[in-house]
Nucleic acid binder design. Structure first.
Lengths: 124, 124
DNA sequence: ACACAGTACTATACGTTACACAATACCTGA
DNA sequence: TCAGGTATTGTGTAACGTATAGTACTGTGT
């Protein structure tokens, strides 16, 4: 999986979970990794950054099954940031959609077109 | 606009245009910039990278209105790469969609939920 | 003839972010 | 006590968008 795709979007995904409920890092990682390929080395830094920037705050709770958990809770600033990021993301997606889906969208269409074009110009 | 969003996707967008027809850099930049915010400093490096990796090849043509144009043409390898990237992108998007669109999707819904949650726990 | 705008491309340096690698620490069950 | 699941932190690296700057060619207005 192209790791570049995740840049910027992972943060939004984390914010999306925190907009629902307070969560601790490990749980967030599990939730995210059910849908996208992501590990602890990636998510924890995001959580630290969000906190550093005032988008989230933390509190510790003890756990019966392991080390204490650091819960992250979204601030109002964080929610506003989340809304803004969502907007930018969907605007960006709309633009990309326009570019990727001109003419034939399906692979067969694309392949037929490409093949037709390359064959008449002695490519090989 | 979050510049991070573009990582990896810009390359796909360029490939999408080249899958249709041979194009020169300046034209590609114009086509892309109608839909997403992107400049020459970003696109030319991508074109060079694509060529370096064998996904595109180039040929020069003279132009009546300016410097000679370097046309980029997609190789078979490039087309295969394009198809693969498209697949990965849509798989990634599907995952992100699952995460971002659980429960209420619209801003009003999200806001109502967030507000309700924060108000009952003496935030402020 | 010269400045200038538009066209077209190249090169260097930097910042952000995902992530590999590594370490720490707590608890439970065999 | 040792493995394994839980839970977090820190360091270093690589990719890629992009700001900045520069080269070079053509046609037009003055």
């Amino acid at each position: 999986m192209n790791t570049q795709f995740k840049r910027g979007i992972l943060e939004i995904c984390v914010l999306a979970l925190l907009a629902e409920n307070d969560q601790y890092g490990y749980a967030i990682i599990h939730a995210l990794s059910q849908h996208i390929d992501v590990g602890e080395n990636t998510v924890y830094p995001i959580l630290r950054r969000l906190t550093k920037e005032g988008y989230t705050e933390t509190y510790l709770t003890e756990s019966k099954a392991g080390a204490p958990r650091k819960y992250y809770t979204m601030t109002k600033l964080g929610f506003a940031h989340y809304m803004k990021q969502r907007d930018e993301w969907s605007a960006f997606l709309a633009g990309v959609y326009q570019i990727l889906n001109r003419g034939g969208k399906k692979h067969e269409d694309l392949y037929r077109r490409f093949k037709a074009r390359t064959e008449k110009t002695t490519t090989e």
